[in-house]
């Protein structure tokens, strides 16, 4: 993997990566307190939404968080885990510092996203759902459509979209992200 180049200054200090994005369980309880229901049926309908909110906020859902969801909505942890492992949007392991959504919808496929998937595999040794060993990058290969098809192939890295990305741009983007967001904003390479 390409080592980040430390000559860029000033550079925001990334929080030390502990290999595990801790999920603040009190915060989970606070989030769940907004999920109120009038009967058992409605409680069950809320399981997916509750998990989605946690997944969205923390980037993943831990065992402990899943158990709290199960408790709050009156169901079993097994049931909650069955859902977590079925639906593609959920992660049961933490995301990397930087999270990449690599659109592999049909439009992006036609415009060459397979090369990007391959590039991520070659360069970082990770595939869909994986995180690099140093925890810097995680990737999700989107099996749906990001809906920015006029810029295919499209990549969403953290909160920014990039269009017409080719394999070389991709590593460039990731390296810039790892070096610090400031550098990336300044250059606007291929800003989708």
């Amino acid at each position: 993997m390409v080592q980040p180049d430390h000559t860029h200054a000033p550079r925001p200090v990334p929080s030390p990566y502990t290999g595990r994005q801790e999920i603040d369980l009190d915060q989970v309880r606070e989030m769940l307190s907004h999920f109120t229901y009038s009967d058992h049926e409605e409680a069950q309908e809320l399981i997916l939404s509750a998990l989605q909110e946690i997944n969205e906020h923390f980037g993943w859902v831990s065992h402990e968080a899943a158990e709290i969801v199960a408790d709050h909505l009156g169901t079993s942890a097994t049931r909650v885990f069955a859902i977590l492992t079925f639906y593609a949007d959920f992660r049961t392991t933490p995301r990397g510092h930087h999270h990449m959504l690599l659109c592999h919808g049909m439009s992006c496929y036609v415009m060459g996203s397979s090369k990007l998937v391959q590039k991520v595999r070659d360069e970082y040794g990770i595939g869909d759902g994986d995180t690099t060993p140093d925890g810097q990058l995680s990737v999700q290969v989107a099996n749906f459509c990001l809906g920015v098809c006029d810029r295919s192939p499209v990549v969403k890295l953290d909160d920014e979209y990039y269009g017409h990305v080719n394999a070389d741009d991709l590593t460039d983007l990731v390296n810039r992200a790892i070096e610090g967001r400031e550098a990336m904003h300044a250059s606007e390479v291929n800003h989708g």
Binding site: L48, S49, Q52, F86, A88
Partner: peptide, 10 residues
């Protein structure tokens, strides 16, 4: 009316 969201399963 209730709004329910899916989790990315075709």
């Amino acid at each position: 009316i209730r709004v329910r969201t899916g989790g990315g399963a075709y």
